[in-house]
Write a protein that binds this DNA or RNA. Structure first.
Lengths: 216, 216
DNA sequence: TCCAGATTCAAACAAATATTTGAAACAACA
DNA sequence: TGTTGTTTCAAATATTTGTTTGAATCTGGA
């Protein structure tokens, strides 16, 4: 078995990880089929055990492989100095782009969703690596926007709400396509959705401020 | 094999359906284990094929069994005459209550989520029976609230956003519990969440109206 | 009581699946 | 070229899982 950092140097490993990402993303750990993976990777069955020690090892390596990938460069440009509202929109866009930016659903996002529905024991670390920082950043931005008077609990809930609006498009893709026919996934949609979600949520925050009573 | 309507008259069938609901809800169709179900139901393995013709038959019967259950009475009280804002909150509460109202996640909701992630071919009818009417009702309420000037596309998106905020708590339960420790699922939470989601979303709608330009 | 049909049961069966194996092919190097 | 360690391969194995089977048990009448 190779060390973690060597996995990507090896052609067989690379093809295996790529194919595994697709398969695990589509069906989740339990329903994913090793055979399907090795066929797609054009690799012999035994390679899985030779390099990764088995299905579970391959799964964990796949998680590392996906979570370790840097987020797309265009999404990170989130310079300071801009208004927090604009930075929020960029954050929202970054999430959407990572999850539904391409024409296909993001493997990492889908695995995360499967893991959330039927945990295999790797959920905590996955969340810690991917969602937690995201939610905390949003929470902090909301604090900047809302000022000090809105209680923290409400802002935390609002941050989750924003996340919820984003991940709905990831989790429930077939549902969405069924509910609003003509909805097309892709980069353009991504930008438009980011604008709408941000707009909608800013309104929500304003109302949270207002219902506190006017400027106590 | 029995006719659909007779399934609930039979003790064995009833126990089987109850156990199947739990197992399918936990793991989804593919990962659910017949053996697990029959052990939980205290029933012989052969009963599955005897009464339902196999795993798939049991699954379909389970879907009928769950989708056919009436929504809790307390949630339906949605009389006309009230302000649309209040009716919206009642709708949101109804969804939350159906999905996360009890201490345990709703089996129907979880199966829906599994089905959305890895469809077995029963998704369309499930959505048609449960989610679609819900989203349409919300959409109509939003129209009442927002007036005629906000474009339909934006309202449709807002309706999905509300749904997204609700289902996040269903889909991503372990994630939520990890992200905001101390969060407790239950009837009280349900009421509080409905209030917050509604409040937040009303703010979003207001802002949608405002960005149209003042009263064109 | 006896019979016929319905239901339950333990065991066997067949199909699918991850894993192992031992030999063959390959690569690096003296 | 010959040798050594690594990688690939087809086939065999063990395990899990849904399904079937045929006998045993139960049930409701004649």
């Amino acid at each position: 078995m190779l060390a973690d950092q060597d996995e990507l140097q090896n052609e067989t490993c690379r093809r295996l990880l790529a194919a595994a990402s697709e398969e695990f993303a589509r069906h989740g750990y339990a329903s994913a089929r090793i055979r399907q993976i090795v066929v797609a990777a054009k690799v012999n069955v035994a390679a899985v055990n030779y390099y990764f020690g088995g299905k579970e090892g391959l799964y964990r390596a796949t998680l590392r492989y996906l979570a370790g990938r840097p987020v797309p460069a265009k999404a990170i440009a989130n310079r300071r100095g801009r208004a927090p509202e604009e930075r929020l929109q960029r954050r929202v866009y970054a999430i959407l782009d990572r999850f539904i930016g391409s024409d296909r659903p993001s493997p990492l996002g889908r695995i995360l969703a499967h893991e959330a529905m039927d945990p295999t024991g790797n959920l905590e670390s996955l969340i810690g690596d991917t969602m937690k920082p995201e939610v905390e950043r949003i929470h902090a931005l909301l604090r900047e926007i809302a000022g000090p008077d809105v209680p923290d609990r409400k802002l935390a809930h609002a941050a989750l709400g924003i996340l919820g609006q984003c991940v709905l498009y990831l989790y429930a893709r077939p549902t969405i396509e069924d509910l609003s026919p003509g909805f097309a996934y892709g980069p353009d949609t991504c930008k438009a959705l980011a604008a709408q979600i941000t707009e909608f949520s800013l309104g929500g925050i304003e109302r949270l401020q207002r219902t506190l009573g006017p400027e106590k």
